[in-house]
Design a protein around this nucleic acid. Sequence first.
DNA 1: ACATTTATTAACGTATGCATCACTGAAAGC
DNA 2: GCTTTCAGTGATGCATACGTTAATAAATGT
Lengths: 225, 225
Amino acid sequence: MTLDAERTRSNSSIAVDMLRDLIFSGELAAGTDHLESELAEVLGMSRTPVREAVVLLEAQGLLEVRPRKGVRIKRVSPEDMAEIYDILTELESLAAETAAKAGYTEQELSGMKQALDAMDEAIAVKNREAWAIADDIFHQELVSLGKNVRLQAIATMMSDQVRRARLVTLYIRPEPTKSNSDHRAVYDAILRGDAGAARAVHHEHRAHAKQVILELLSRHRLSSI
Amino acid sequence: MTLDAERTRSNSSIAVDMLRDLIFSGELAAGTDHLESELAEVLGMSRTPVREAVVLLEAQGLLEVRPRKGVRIKRVSPEDMAEIYDILTELESLAAETAAKAGYTEQELSGMKQALDAMDEAIAVKNREAWAIADDIFHQELVSLGKNVRLQAIATMMSDQVRRARLVTLYIRPEPTKSNSDHRAVYDAILRGDAGAARAVHHEHRAHAKQVILELLSRHRLSSI
DNA sequence: ACATTTATTAACGTATGCATCACTGAAAGC
DNA sequence: GCTTTCAGTGATGCATACGTTAATAAATGT
């Protein structure tokens, strides 16, 4: 018996999840157009819940409803990336500061620690996808330690928008060794309760990551993803 | 002839605006429940566009859809206020920094300047509502000078959520003279291109404002608004 | 052959109808 | 008298149908 956590999820919320997955997996590629009726057929439901989902995803910046032309999956330009990274830099730095002030125990930071170890391991075996997943978890952990649900929601939204782009750059970027030492420094600062350092180190880390990725995009002439 | 900027707006987007207005004006009071069919009747349209609007406003945190119990207008607790102010503090400070770096001319900062003067005038004649409006404009101007449309959208969302609360505290808070000198300092820093100062001063201003308002809420036993 | 007007199509926005499911109250059993 | 079960009610979530309107194709005139 599969324990069904929730009774019956609404089709509308299922549509949100499925569409997100289709976008992240590239099955709904950036820049492509899709009729609501097509999407409804793909998702196996009527247009009504699909429309509700589409309205939501439009508000989250993943797609764009163009009347009579279908929904267009949004591309992400370098300018978009810059905007998003700037926002993530600020909000995650705040989360790091708050987390440090909260005085978490090593136990409570175990999720973060595991992500760190997973990243090291991934680098050792040169598995970039595994590293990307662990990196994602690290940042999610960090943000959730900040105990600000709105901030978490915003960070998720922003991360979602650059998700595809990160996949593209994953194999052309330099090895993420610097990234890892940064992460450890943030972890250490939080563990010893040094709020100022946690904020500063993470801010620096994110700002640097932004530079690296923007240069990559420019060097490879990736004007939109 | 009124120049109709947009051809025919969709009922759905009209519903969003009208519901927001009803919420901000208090006609849909915090904590109250409303059936979709009632709202549809009030707005003079069918349930479909109302539902779309409601889905959006739920995502923006203004209300909550409770199946079979109607739409509940969300209250804002002091904890919510803290979260929101923290986010606004970070994002507006970033905007201030970016604005300073952009090297705007006095001309380009005229919108901000006007808001400043309007605030001074409002304080002189002790018109708090006028001050609140000008203050709002100042912050909007600041954020828009940051040239990050996502940041602007988030800031608007967050400001919306505390809008009602600010109305409540407007008359029990101390005279906003300190606030005004802070604002001028931010303006000056941006004008002379001092990014570090712009960020720091604004950060300090917002952090202080958060403290003041939270103490007010606590002192007046306003556990939710 | 080209431009302009008309006709057609089809996608979206909206209204409407219906099935589902939680909640209310009444009836029956203990 | 109290608890429990069952029927009734009503709001939501969803499907479907339709009108409007923009985009496309056709047709007409120059």
